[in-house]
Design a protein around this nucleic acid. Sequence first.
DNA 1: GCTTGCTCCTCTAGCGACTAGAGGATGTAG
DNA 2: CTACATCCTCTAGTCGCTAGAGGAGCAAGC
Lengths: 141, 141
Amino acid sequence: MKKHAAIGEAARITGVKAPTIRYYEQIGLLPPPPRTDANRRHYSTNDLRRLSFIRHARELGFEVEAIRTLLTLQDAPDQPCKEADAIARARLAEVEHRIARLTALKVELSHMIACDGHGGIRQCRVIESLADESHDHGRLD
Amino acid sequence: MKKHAAIGEAARITGVKAPTIRYYEQIGLLPPPPRTDANRRHYSTNDLRRLSFIRHARELGFEVEAIRTLLTLQDAPDQPCKEADAIARARLAEVEHRIARLTALKVELSHMIACDGHGGIRQCRVIESLADESHDHGRLD
DNA sequence: GCTTGCTCCTCTAGCGACTAGAGGATGTAG
DNA sequence: CTACATCCTCTAGTCGCTAGAGGAGCAAGC
């Protein structure tokens, strides 16, 4: 990984698009980097790590506010464990909830794919299984 | 399930909020229902099933356009279900990918919680694991 | 030096899929 | 007959980007 990168290179390295990087700066997720004489952003290795972190967390479905919390932890590594622990536990609960929900959805999707292509949509279980009233009506979020 | 329902009752039955039901009508996902003398929407059992279908599909992560396709297939039941099946398969792949990712994160979060009481967050691997370059950089969407 | 073409800058506007609120009409219970 | 819930339409806001306009700067070839 290089020591300094312009925004385009940072985008290439981290997989976060340049406009999104600027957006993250705007909303305060990424600190404003130093600029060159020509007013161009210059990212350090640390910035790139932070960006990679944000990207992976976003891919996992964490909201920006949750990521902000995790980054705050990262920025203050000597914080008392009590607080860190509480935040981690909250995130873990969220992750477990997501896994449970996704696992249920996976089962449903697997059943839906049992359609074998004989005789058209009437025998296709994709639609049937989604319209099925026997599915729970409880809140999931 | 009752034969006719006002929008509030439809919301209660299907779990889709009233403004969202109107929104679905607006974007053409739900056909405009008949109105009473006082201009109030009146939903049939069939509308409620369609709404339940939409809700389930949204919860499964289907985009509105994908749902529109599924509903079109449903409305023309003699079409082959290859398309619907393909959509479901794509969803299943994504769901499995997310489960795998979240499971990995869950392990790291568990470790983080397990490390409490010994010198703070520095020993925790959550942030490290999310910033880890060894994670793939390929497109996910 | 000069031109070509890429990258970068800021700014505003748009997207999907809702959600919230204003302001007003109607339906129902005591 | 008066509350109060429910409904109506409408506009505007939310989140997390994404696209485009319009302009400046840099590196490389001639």
